[in-house]
Structure formats: C-alpha cells, structure tokens
Nucleic acid binder design. Structure first.
Lengths: 224, 224
DNA sequence: GCATATTTGTCCGTATGTATA
DNA sequence: CTATACATACGGACAAATATG
C-alpha cells in the first residue's frame, strides 16, 4: 500500500485538506466516517488518524460521539486569528534587516499574479495570490515555526473567505496595499512597512468581520 | 470505555505527555506500540491516535515504518524555538497597555514560587516556576492562539532542560530577571520590559545552546 | 418519556511492507 | 541475501452515545 514517503493517513488528510479549502465541504459540514472511507479508499482507522491531523491543524473540530465537522469560526475566533496575524506578520517585518533583493522575488511574483487575476476578474485567484503574498512575507523570517503557524492561520482564514459574499470587495483593495508594502521592503523601510502592515490588517479584520457577520445572518435565516 | 468527557486517545496522550515531560522517556527514546498498549490499557489504534496528537504538539516525531520517538531538538531547532519565543513574548509585552494589577497576580505567584524553590535548592522546581511565569506572561495578551503556541514552545523547551546538566546554573539567574520584569510591568513600563525581555531571551538562548551542545557531546561519547 | 436506528468510539485479528541484524 | 521484528494498514465486531420517530 504505502508506495510513497507518506503514510496513508497523511495522504488522506492532504486530499481532504484540498477539498475543504476549495469549498467542497463548507464550514459546519459534518464529515461522516463511513461515507469518506469509500471515497478515499482507506479504512476507518486510517481515516480517523487523518481527522486527527486536520483537527490539530484547526480545519476540523472533533465533538465527542458526534463526529468531525469543518470548523466554523465565530467572531471571537476571527478577532483572535487577526490578533495572531498582526503579532506574527508585523513583528517579522519590523525585525527585518539587510534584505537580499532575491528574497523579494516570491513576493513580487504574487503581487503580479494578483494583478493579473484582477484583470481577468478572477476574484478568488486574487484572494489566493494575496494569501500567498503573506505566506512569503513571513517566510522572510526564515523560521520553520513561524512558517507553520502562518500557514495554519491562513488556511483557517481561507475558510472564512469561502462563506462571505462579494469576494471582489474583499480581495481587490489589498492588491495595491501589497504592492506598496513590497515597495517599502525594496527601499529597506522595514519599520514603516511594519506600521503600514498593522493598519492594513486592522482594516482587513474590520471588513472581514462585518462581511462574515452578514453571511452568518444569512445562514441563520436560511437554516432557522 | 469512555466514562469521561475525553476520548481514550486524548486521555492516553495526556498520560504520555506527563511521562515524557517528567523525563521518564528521555529525548530519542522510541515508544513502542506493543509495549505501551499494555501499559496504558488501550488498543493499538487508540494509541496510534494518541501518537498523532503528541507528534503534532512537537513532543514526538514520526519516522515512517520506524515508529515514534521522543523529539530530540538539534541546534537549529533550538535557535528556531528561541526565535519564535522572542517574537511572541516580546511583542506581547510591547503591545500591552493599561494593565490591571489583578492580571499580574499569577506572575507574582510564580516569581515567589521560584524564590521559595531556590531557598530549598529544588532547581527543577525553579525551572518549572520560571516556565509558568512565561506562560502567564503571554496570557496577558488574552489570546487563545498565543497561549497555545506558547504552551507548545515551553513544552518542547522543557525536554531540552531535561537533558542538560547543572540545572541550577540554567534556572537560578532568571528568577531575578523575572522579578525585575514584573517590576517593570507593575510600573507600566512595557516598552522597557519588552527590550529587557529580548536581552533576557538572547542570553538564555546562548546558555542553553552551549549547555545543550555539551550534553549532546556527552551522549555522543556514551553511545558511540 | 421511551424505543429504535444511526453513527461514533474502541478493540481485536490478520496481512503486508519496511528496516535492521 | 535471508530472516526476524516491527510498524503500517485493513476489515470486522461490539460497546456506547446520540439523534430520531
């Protein structure tokens, strides 16, 4: 069975992760064991291990004797997520020094990808490129731990983005801000970049909160 | 079996976590499935789920088809751990404002516990109180995510402390620094506290690195 | 409130693949 | 290279809890 350098549980988790982040299982969905064993071609025990992995990543929540569900962040969790984002990203940028220009290449690539996606009005791709921009941003700290935490934060945030309406308003304004941020990094103005980023993230938080609250009301009216 | 509000896997993971952090299974030890199923009274599947939980917490590492081992941090991982600690703790302290005095009570308690342990020359207890001090310190940010990351960092750090010789030198100097830090927080001098803490953590990192390197050489000579 | 059906939680037996002696 | 030990994975079974009528 195990022909690759990953266990069956890890491979199953990876498949599920993709399906979840692509919106196939929207937040709140229950993932049944029996249904997915057939779909993924693994046993129940293996699937349960995959569930554990994703639950620890924050994408799933375990409710004892109820099963696993795609996580549904409430307002508090969203505020907390952005608090961590600000702490992590701003501090990474602030403590940068003597950055090599080659290190900024991935950031430039994502800004250009976002701008291209904007032209063809692919708002979801704009959001994806923006999130990749931030992933590469924290990668400048060259810390595996920082990378890992940031990846988890952005993965959860992506779930939030899936359920809000009007992705255009949610993603487009930040393309310009990312380009400006990139300019400040190129100029070596790290402190200025950090304070800019902080303002950036506060604005984003406020916008996501209102958009998410509206979406939650929509869902509330629909289901009850 | 499940008489409490936790699954068997979570309970098994909790027992293992305690045993590992108490030094019963020193870093590098392999945890055999067959041996532990009997000891914990759970099946292999349940134990494997517990392994996944602890592996994701960073206490165990999974090597495919080899089994699980208590994590053994190398020098790079230690540097990375301290990088994350500085980022998290310093930024939490720096962004404090208008702290209520009641919020400092847990910090005061841990400083006093450390001083009491120092008097009775219980160096391990000194280290434990110091670590609790830092856990309460980041708790001032009132963020579940920050708390969780800090808890993982300190749990891994504890494993490092277990294998270094001379715990007195490793823990005693920081009791005084923690008290000074507490004084700065009481006085509302958060920026000063943050920069003090940064220096603090850099000194600690250097000391742990040398002590740990020496211990690694010891182990190297013993086993090879 | 009660009985039933469904789903999760847990355990066991077994087969297969991999690493190490 | 062979053999052994062990991790990995599967499928079936029963217990326990929840949800539904």
């Amino acid at each position: 069975m195990g022909l690759v350098n990953q266990s069956a549980a890890e491979r199953a988790a990876e498949v599920l992760r993709c399906r979840i982040t692509e919106g196939e299982f929207p937040p709140g969905t229950q993932l049944s064991e029996e249904g997915l064993t057939a779909a993924l071609g693994v046993s129940r025990n293996t699937l349960r291990e995959a569930f554990r992995l994703l639950a620890h990543d924050g994408l799933l929540v375990h409710r004892l004797h109820r099963g696993v569900f795609v996580v549904e962040l409430d307002a508090y969790a969203l505020v907390d997520l952005y608090r961590m984002r600000r702490l992590l990203e701003c501090e990474v940028v602030r403590s940068l020094e003597g950055l090599d220009d080659a290190q900024l290449v991935p950031l430039r690539r994502e800004v250009e990808a976002a701008e291209a996606a904007m032209v063809r009005e692919d708002w979801l791709a704009v959001g994806t490129a923006n999130m990749h921009f931030h992933q590469h941003l924290v990668a400048l700290a060259e810390s595996r731990r920082v990378d890992k935490v940031a990846r988890q934060l952005l993965a959860e945030l992506r779930l939030v983005f899936l359920v809000v309406a009007n992705p255009r308003r949610l993603h487009v304004p930040y393309v310009e801000r990312n380009r400006r941020l990139l300019g400040l990094l190129e100029a070596g103005k790290y402190r200025r970049a950090a304070s800019d980023l902080e303002e950036y993230l506060r604005i984003s938080e406020a916008q996501v909160l209102t958009a998410y609250g509206a979406a939650a009301e929509q869902r509330g009216r629909a289901s009850g």
